[in-house]
Design a protein around this nucleic acid. Sequence first.
DNA 1: TGGTCTGACGTCACCGAT
DNA 2: ATCGGTGACGTCAGACCA
Lengths: 230, 230
Amino acid sequence: MEMTDFELTSNSQSNLAIPTNFKSTLPPRKRAKTKEEKEQRRIERILRNRRAAHQSREKKRLHLQYLERKCSLLENLLNSVNLEKLADHKDVLTYSHDAFVASLDEYRDFQSTRGASLDTRASSHSSSDTFTPSPLNCTMEPATLSPKSMRDSASDQETSWELQMFKTENVPESTTLPAVDNNNLFDAVASPLADPLCDDIAGNSLPFDNSIDLDNWRNPAVITMTRKLQ
Amino acid sequence: MEMTDFELTSNSQSNLAIPTNFKSTLPPRKRAKTKEEKEQRRIERILRNRRAAHQSREKKRLHLQYLERKCSLLENLLNSVNLEKLADHKDVLTYSHDAFVASLDEYRDFQSTRGASLDTRASSHSSSDTFTPSPLNCTMEPATLSPKSMRDSASDQETSWELQMFKTENVPESTTLPAVDNNNLFDAVASPLADPLCDDIAGNSLPFDNSIDLDNWRNPAVITMTRKLQ
DNA sequence: TGGTCTGACGTCACCGAT
DNA sequence: ATCGGTGACGTCAGACCA
């Protein structure tokens, strides 16, 4: 194949260490004349493109994350109002009653017809490693997720918390929380939700008056549930 | 390079026509002995994997499409009610007024902090089934884009779960969730998590105050649960 | 023309399940 | 040990922009 193998020795492998700093030694706006110049241009372009691809993937990933969070928040909001009653309060409807009902029907229809469920593997990943709590968060205002606020804001009777589990590098075993078994946890989560986007689960089989939303796509899974306790 | 070029002639190119039908001529459960057998196994695996990758991509694409549509419908629905007025109609709120306002604030906060401007570039590439996911113009630091964690790849083969809690309030002791019951999804999920977590919070062993730098690189693989109680 | 960006592909590494 | 699924990567093709 020969592949020019000039200096692009990385035909198929990770080639970690993205060439974030490489300079073109060629004049930027000049027609390449020599075969060699052409080659160098080509190679530089490939390097740049490699980097661009990386950025593009990252952006896409963030976009996905954004969409998932947005859906989650929107559903939360939606679940905190009684839609049936709402339909009769004309004064809170922006448009007509019919417009509202139409939107609502469209959404419900979408939710019911749309399979959109993927396998329920929920790959529990790493059977024996540790829960290491740590504040990630890009998306939240510091004030919003301030650890203080969850400790001493007893003023509000509304309790809402979110847990996020995410993969990170391994940490020493000593800090493990022994009681929790990841596998069991995930199995417990995944198995009842074996079938599709579990909007109907909230409806009948489980004592939820709110929604559970299992996102089977993400590895391992994103589960959003809302429940009204007494 | 020579690359065995047995029958895998497609080193780098599209090679449309996914081999949907190929049969293994090798016994399925037998140790490969011959070099040739091993080679054939390898090649068949590569073909199968090529196909699997295709499916996986398709699935991901559909999921993205699903999320976009869902968000869109939810937003439609939301836009058809006057949220300000709604907050005062306690009879249509599922929970408390505060709960509703909290959800609303959370959503608005999210919307404002996230750029959330999709450029809605009408793709000319419409092949009638391809959906272009409107690249989000996410506001992020330049550092986020830089391929930082590519460097510390020495340890990235071992991952563990991290658990994070954000936007949370005090959970009443009386509502501490009982032991895991497979029929109760929420309990099954929450109790293994809630107990150690709460214990650790009480024991202040969770460094919620420090902000660990966000690993933007790895997929967060998120479990998110939201629980509301009145 | 030159550039970037992104969809799609094929490959590999890794994981869990079998 | 083998297999399927998937995250990540690098490459190419093609769009769009300078």
